[in-house]
Simulated assay, not measured.
Amino acid sequence: MSITITSHQLGRLIARTADHIGDDLTPALHGIRLDADTEYLYAVATDRFTIAAARYRHHKPDSENTAPAAPFARTIPATALPALREWIRTMPGHDPVTVTPADDRIRFAAPTGELAITIDPDAEFADWRGLLRGVTEQTPNTGEPVFPALGTRLQARWQSADGVVRVRATGDHQPVLVVGEDFLGAQMPTRTRRDGFSTDTDTLATLDDVRTAWQDAFSTGPAITPQTALPSPPQLRDEASKTISEVAEDLLKQALHSTRLLTAVDTSEATAALATAGVTAWAAYRYLDALHTADPHLAATVVAETAEELDDGAISEWAWDAARAAGHDPQQWQTELQERQARKQAAA
């Protein structure tokens, strides 16, 4: 009945759902539900106003190395989550963590230690699968405007869901669907404004009401899009990519271009340079892909920091300092390079 997940991914499941935990007035919802089937481990939390489910694939259906684990579902009490999160932070992100439900415990075992949390194995939880299925299968209400009122305090809970999420609203009184990578959630619309008045009597309940209330502020000219109305920051010609997807695309493009041009060059130096560029780009892509799988947040940080270094332009200085910090002798490397260049010139 055990499943294995990296410590980083376990911590990420908790972080993406913790903001949606219900309060202690509803004990059944005062925690995070770990729900494992034969393929995914889910972390689910809900406070009745929002619901969030994040997942991690612990077993591939076509895997021949291990048999799928038996399904289980246990609720980790909110009071035990600080200890679990602190325990996760003490280990490297790539360390494997085995999650095993017991009679009245759920055990987490890693190479550096174990943690057992007391649980109620019979604790009930909301039918989250049915709830989210219902939200995804909602159809727009015919004749009803799609202009729901959403509590801004609740919207702040989605900041840990993903860097970018998609939303779908099908009616004023239907839950709004929130979708991210391996993430699914929903938020209930509110019927009461912050000042306590019902939205049923809100004078800004429709888009026509909004246009009427703001007509004095709107320009008398034609409507324009933000892309044409707002200035964009200047783009440097050598500006480095700052997102993981852009960097991955650039590396793959460089690997393909360099290797395809190998047969089109004449000199041995050009051939060697293209071969080196292609091999290096492919290696960098593989490393980035592995890092993104193991620790997406660290990958994003490294990409952003590297982009700043590339924009700075002092690559040789950064490399020199990194070599010295790693215990190498960059001056000796420079001397050897100059000696090789001198021998080539003498032979020519």
Rank of each mutant, 00 (worst) to 15 (best):
I88F: 10
I106L: 10
D24E: 07
F72I: 01
R74W: 06
A70T: 14
V44L: 12
P92Q: 09
L34G: 07
A15C: 04
I106N: 00
P111H: 02
Y40M: 14
P71C: 02
M91A: 02
D23M: 09
D103V: 09
L25P: 04
Q9C: 11
E39C: 08
R48K: 15
I76N: 11
R89E: 10
D35A: 11
N65A: 15
T50R: 04
G113S: 04
F108T: 00
F108C: 12
R12K: 14
F49G: 00
T75E: 03
F108A: 03
S63W: 04
T98A: 14
G113W: 03
F49C: 12
A36I: 02
G93W: 01
A70S: 14
A54N: 08
D19V: 06
S7F: 01
R48P: 09
A110V: 02
D24N: 05
P96A: 05
T75R: 02
H94D: 15
G11F: 08
I5Q: 06
E64V: 15
I106W: 04
R74H: 01
R107C: 13
R16W: 08
D19E: 08
L34I: 07
P68Q: 08
V97R: 11
T100K: 05
R89Q: 11
A80D: 04
T90W: 07
G113E: 05
I51T: 12
E64I: 15
G113T: 07
P71G: 07
T50I: 11
